[in-house]
Amino acid sequence: MLLIPCPYCGNRPEIEFSYGGQAHIARPPVPEELDDDAWGAFLYARDNVRGPHRERWRHLHGCARFFNLVRDTRTDRIIASYRVGTPCPRVEPL
């Protein structure tokens, strides 16, 4: 069970959180302007990262806030935790 640093509450066990998939995929402001391929990519195309992965989490059974993590998918090491709307901290490339 991961120990997840919620940027609002601090370290909490994974059981308090829900996972929200890859981060930084903004909903297009005017969806009708996207062609079918671009919209399909927004809906379904996701990275399958081996290494640092930027992902959304929600502290569902705590402050209930969404936030972002950078987690190394090889080791589960958590590299960064930051609030929604703030830029992702620089992560060293693999």
């Binding site: 005017v30 009708e32 996207l34 079918d36 919209w39 399909g40 809906l43």
Partner: peptide, 13 residues
């Protein structure tokens, strides 16, 4: 309505 969640998908063939 120009947009709501899921509307753009309804226009896919």
């Amino acid at each position: 309505k120009r947009d709501f969640v899921g509307k753009r998908s309804l226009a896919r063939p």
